[in-house]
Structures are given as C-alpha cells and as structure tokens.
Design a protein around this nucleic acid. Structure first.
Length: 292
DNA sequence: ACGCCCTCCTGTTGGC
DNA sequence: TGCCAACAGGAGGGCG
C-alpha cells in the first residue's frame, strides 16, 4: 500500500493516522484533481487512448473511449464529485468512486485502466483497483442524465441555508443521510457530512424536517467553510503529493471527529461516538451536538 | 417518495 | 505464523 502512495493526487496529510482518506475523494479532492488536470493538459490534444478492464467502469451507454482520440481538451468542469471533460467533439463524465486516481505521467500499474496520451508527450492515466469509479463518453451535444440530476454544488452559491431549509421541509430522512444524497446537494461524502454536522452542532440522526432555519444556515456555512479550507490547503499536499516523505499534513488537521471513535471531542472532551447510518459510519459528539 | 437491502470490487483486518 | 471470512464504502437499482 505504501508503495502506491506516491500516486495519490489529493494529498490528505499523514496517512499513518488516516488510512482510508485516499479511498474516498469528496468535493475538495475532486476539485484538486480537476485543477491538476487543467494545469497540465488544458488545450492539449489526445493522440492515443489505451484502456484495459473498463467493463465495470464504463456506462453501458458510453461510446468507446477511443472516441477521445484526436480530442482537444477545452475544459474540465466539476459538479459535486463528478468531473466533466469538455473536448472538441465529445465529453467525458467521470467519477472517482472509492479508489479512482488520475495521475499525470505515472507508470502503468496493476490497476491502471485508462491512459490518454497527449500530443506533447505527456499522459494522463486513470487507476482504480476496486472499479467503483465511473466513466462515460458521449457527444458534446448530448446531456447526461446523472450529471443533470445532481443537486447544487456544495460550495456554489446556489446551495444556501434557505435552499437546505426548503428542501428538508418534507423529508423525514436523517440529516446526515440527507446531506449525502447527491441529488439534494452534490459533493458531500462521509467525511464532510460528519465534520460539517459536528461544526454546526447538529446531531446526525436529526430528522431533516426538524431542522430550524438557523441550523440549516449553520450546516451550509460550515460545510462550505470546511471544504474551501480543504481546497485552499491542497497547495502543500497537491503539488507535493509524495506523501511517503512525511510532508504535507494539511488535511488531517481539519478532522475533528471522522475516524476518531473514543477520542476526546475537541470541544468538550467527551468521547466521540461512532454509529452506522445508511450502511455508513458516522462520527459525532453526543455531548455537544444536541439530541436526536 | 420513503426506507430498506443488494450489487459491484479488492485491499485490509480480525478471528481462529 | 498463516489462512480465510468479514468488512469497508459511492452510488445506482430493485422492491414493497
């Protein structure tokens, strides 16, 4: 595992304390990947496409990855955790799933699935051991159902406290599960859901429609703040993604409760609780996040 | 529209 | 020390 860490694009600090971070890219990590791809490949022309074992990654409606040959990369957009490559003729919708990694000029390895070779000799490869990722090539003119169905981006202005308040009025879903539904708001995953609710002092099992306007405002404000801080701090970790040298460490400093069961709450010293919601681990402080 | 469960997959972990 | 089952987890899909 450690040998592969040099390929990690979104540095998440000292992985000795946070082994699972790299498996779960959320909005900030995907945004860093987007910026990394743009910085290196914007305006470049793909001259060769190589792929292997993409059966579980490719959408059934996807055109062949070979369609990307001769395409010039015009831009890369992000919505939530999805990336959308805009090229001259085709678009590529991509999701990293759990273990997807885009790497620039990295050697082909066991689970490398796709390689785009560019005219200037550089290349971009996609590696995904568990194949939970997603790739879909369609003509530029077509719209993509999954992409279109996504809720407003979590760091965009469209997602506001008012928006969350209105959306939650008719929902009896637990708020943590609600926040992770990408069709309500796009980009929040397991890490940020726990962290944002902790920051906002809202119990993760609260029924969505029980939230007050003030609590909705607080959740949205803290989610954006935490995500922006994370993106902003990628500087160290992103450009210096060789985490094996021990440098970096920007991200784990944000984590107050995630993956810290039993450790003292940074606010009140009460031990952090761990529960399962919707099949996923939630971490929170029973003492200072109120009641259900 | 909800709430639950299942599927995909493989590296890691924990029990014996 | 070694083996193997259980586990994790984003997201879509199916079912009642």
């Amino acid at each position: 595992m450690r040998a592969n860490r040099s390929l990690i694009w979104f540095g998440l600090g000292d992985l000795r304390e946070f082994e699972y971070a790299y498996r779960m890219p959320e909005l900030p990590e995907v945004e860093c990947v987007r910026q990394g791809i743009l910085a290196e490949f914007l305006g470049q022309k793909i001259v060769q496409v190589w792929s292997r074992d993409t059966g579980n990654l490719l959408d059934q409606k996807s055109l062949s990855l070979q369609k990307m040959k001769s395409a010039v990369l015009h831009s890369v957009e992000r919505r939530g955790k999805y990336l959308r490559w805009i090229t001259s003729d085709f678009q590529l919708i991509a999701h990293l799933g759990m273990t997807g990694v885009w790497s620039a000029n990295a050697e082909r390895q066991k689970h490398t699935r796709v390689e785009f070779r560019f005219e200037n000799g550089t290349w971009l490869s996609y590696t995904d051991p568990r194949q939970f990722g997603y790739l879909c090539v369609i003509p530029s003119s077509e719209s993509h159902a999954r992409w279109m169905a996504l809720g407003p981006d979590a760091i965009g202005t469209e997602w506001s406290g008012v928006h969350l308040w209105k959306e939650t009025r008719s929902s009896r879903v637990e708020i943590k599960v609600f926040l992770m539904d990408q069709n309500h708001v796009a980009g929040i995953g397991n890490i940020y859901a726990s962290e944002a609710l902790f920051a906002a002092r809202v119990h993760p099992q609260r029924c969505a429609q029980s939230l007050t306007r003030a609590e909705c405002n607080s959740i949205v404000r803290h989610t954006k703040k935490i995500m922006m801080l994370s993106i902003h701090n990628r500087g160290t970790t992103f450009s210096d993604y060789r985490l094996t040298n021990g440098k970096g460490g920007a991200f784990q400093g944000f984590l107050k409760v995630f993956q810290k069961p039993g450790k003292p709450c940074p606010r009140c010293r009460n031990p952090i609780s761990q529960i399962v919601q919707g099949g996923r681990s939630t971490f929170f402080c029973e003492e200072c996040q109120g009641g259900k």
